[in-house]
Nucleic acid binder design. Structure first.
Length: 542
RNA sequence: GCGCCCGUAGCUCAGCGGAUCAGAGUAUUGGCCUCCGAAGCCAAGGGUCGUGGGUUCGAAUCCCGCCGGGCGCGCCA
């Protein structure tokens, strides 16, 4: 049952008795952070005091008196300026424990009659170099977001879009060719915008060793793209991230979608010619200036395939689309949306959604390392995973709000491996496993165990946290904010460690022991469910 | 200059559809292993929530100015 809705109904009934003329007011039930203020709280009296011309504390008192007796409510009290604090009967938390054991890995997940077809596009790195820390943040964030939405009833597709056709790929091919011919970045004849990283030399070496023709630019391009794609895939696999679809930008040219979009924009009357170029009136849709669609040399700007790509998302049936990108791309948000609006396809003006994250600044040896492919000096995702481990990197990268600034101190991350909060959470999980192996029994028979012994303060705090898990997930999904999961897990683990230290689980008394084991099993289950959403392992031993 | 984002404890960061909201971790200091794992627990000190106004009975949270930082501002992608 939905305890919040239940409490809301109780108070609404009371309100109708106490102040019939204000019975239409919205009753908000909140969770106070401080357990001293009860399990739930309601500020209804504060909201309505002025309207019904009564003192808020007096009104709150009348409401409390009018609430009918209820098996889930232990106590109602007026506090502060006129809050109604609600303390639940232990029964409410005990039912949550029973529900967790019954539902297992499905606890916190919801099903909807018609699962919305949802796409999360993330990483989408060009195949011009290895994945760096920024891609890592995106991979951790996007993958967790996709899992979170899937848990809330969405049918989710993870998609990786990559540019295999543009000028940067051309530069990549030129760079590999130059290296294959024995040229370095300092030599005459090195391409102007060439990639200088050492990995280019390695690719060139393999190209030549495999019999590649240094005069065949197209062959060098294909070889380099394939090699870098392989490397990116290996990095993602090592990071535990899998994509359902890899969408190639080049396909939008070969299947005519790019041309079709330009024709449609012209036909819709939103374009004009000026100085030999074709412009789109994006200012009609909130952009600060119009954008070129077709350059005077006849080629298209990058944003045309971008729009064409998003048309395919709409046409493929994705009514909810979330693009995870760095904030350095924020100007494309308006443009892509404007392009879609100009096509008049019936796409909502806020389509697609964006989660923009700040770029990661990497500090090493007290100095910032510039993330630049061309400089060839940057920290790769693989470096990080090698240094601090996959679980720690994923947990760390997803533990912050997407738009928070982010400083990744490499030395600190390496030195503080043991202090990383991921171990704290994983340790709580392993501890429960350890208790069960000590006990020698299986958790499964506990599913229907009597839980009446769970009445202690720490037990109530744990049950409160466990019971709130589904609501937390729903909120996080709505806000597109998976970092909330990491924080909740940290708190749950903390409450468990406190409990474990204060109370013995394997006590003599059977009823108490069984109830405590059931609580531990529920804690373990929720930790496992949360960690699974973050793509972090829940080890039985550490 | 214009646009978007960010300024919360020494450090890394939560909280921001207003109220019981000054928080966590870390670092520092002091305690806790004859007993289910000390990668743990308990406790202490530490912040006028960048700053100045405004709205409100009530603002870290909403609005405006300013200061500081990041990112954008191309017929590059």
């Amino acid at each position: 049952m939905d305890i919040k809705a239940h409490l809301g109904a109780l108070l609404r009934t009371a309100l109708a008795k106490v102040a019939p003329d204000a019975a239409d007011a919205e009753v908000l039930i909140e969770r106070p952070r401080d357990p001293a203020h009860g399990d739930f709280a309601c500020n209804l009296a504060l909201q309505l005091a002025k309207r019904v011309k009564r003192n808020p504390r007096q009104l709150a008192g009348q409401l409390v008196a009018a609430v009918a007796a209820d098996p889930y409510v232990a106590k109602l009290e007026v506090a502060g300026a006129g809050f109604i604090n609600i303390r639940l009967a232990p029964r409410a938390g005990q039912e949550a424990v029973a529900r967790i054991l019954a539902q297992g890995s499905a606890y916190g997940h919801t099903r909807t009659a018609q699962a919305p077809k949802t796409m999360v596009e993330f990483v989408s790195a060009n195949p011009t170099g290895p994945l760096h820390v920024g891609h890592g943040r995106q991979a951790a964030l996007g993958d967790a977001l996709a899992a979170l939405l899937a848990s809330q009833g969405h049918e989710v597709t993870r998609e990786f879009y990559y540019n295999d056709a543009g000028a940067q790929i051309h530069n990549l091919a030129l760079s590999v060719q130059a290296r294959a011919r024995g040229k370095g970045p300092e030599d005459p004849g090195w391409p102007a915008d060439g990639y200088r990283g050492e990995y280019i030399e390695e690719i060139a070496r393999n190209f030549v060793a495999g019999g590649g023709d240094t005069g065949d630019l197209e062959a060098a391009r294909k070889f380099a793209v394939a090699a870098l794609r392989r490397e990116q895939d290996a990095d993602l696999q090592a990071f535990g991230v899998k994509f359902d679809v890899y969408y190639l930008e080049s396909s939008l040219y070969t299947n005519g979608r790019v041309d079709a979009v330009v024709k449609a924009l012209v036909a819709a009357g939103h374009t004009y010619e000026q100085e030999g170029a074709l412009w789109l009136r994006t200012t009609d849709y909130g952009d600060d200036k119009d954008r070129v669609v077709r350059k005077s040399d006849g080629s298209y700007t990058y944003f045309v395939p971008d729009v064409a790509y998003h048309v395919t998302k709409w046409e493929r049936g994705y009514r909810k689309v979330i693009n995870v990108q760095g904030t350095d791309h924020h100007s494309t948000v308006t443009r892509v949306r404007a392009g879609l609006q100009a096509l008049d396809l019936g796409v909502p003006s806020g389509y697609p959604d964006y989660v923009l994250h700040n770029l990661v600044r990497v500090v090493r040896g007290g100095e910032e390392v510039k993330i630049s492919k061309r400089a060839g000096s940057y920290v790769t995702l693989r470096d990080l995973v090698d240094w601090v481990g996959r679980d720690a990197v994923r947990f760390f990268l997803v533990s912050r709000r997407a738009d928070s600034d982010f400083v990744f101190d490499v030395d600190l991350a390496r030195a503080q491996t043991e202090e990383n909060p991921v171990y704290y959470v994983q340790y709580a999980h392993a501890r429960v496993c350890s208790v069960f192996s000590q006990w020698g029994g299986d958790a499964a028979p506990l599913a229907g165990a009597p839980l009446a012994a769970l009445t202690g303060a720490r037990e109530r705090a744990l049950m409160r946290r466990l019971a709130g898990f589904p609501e937390m997930l729903a909120d996080a999904a709505r806000e597109l904010a998976p970092h909330a999961i990491a924080f909740t897990l940290r708190e749950l683990a903390g409450e468990f460690h406190s409990y474990y230290n204060a109370e013995r689980i394997l006590v003599e008394d059977e009823a108490t022991r069984t109830a405590r084991l059931a609580l531990c099993a529920a804690v373990r289950q929720v930790l496992a469910n949360g960690l699974a959403l973050l793509g972090v392992r829940a080890p039985e031993r550490m």
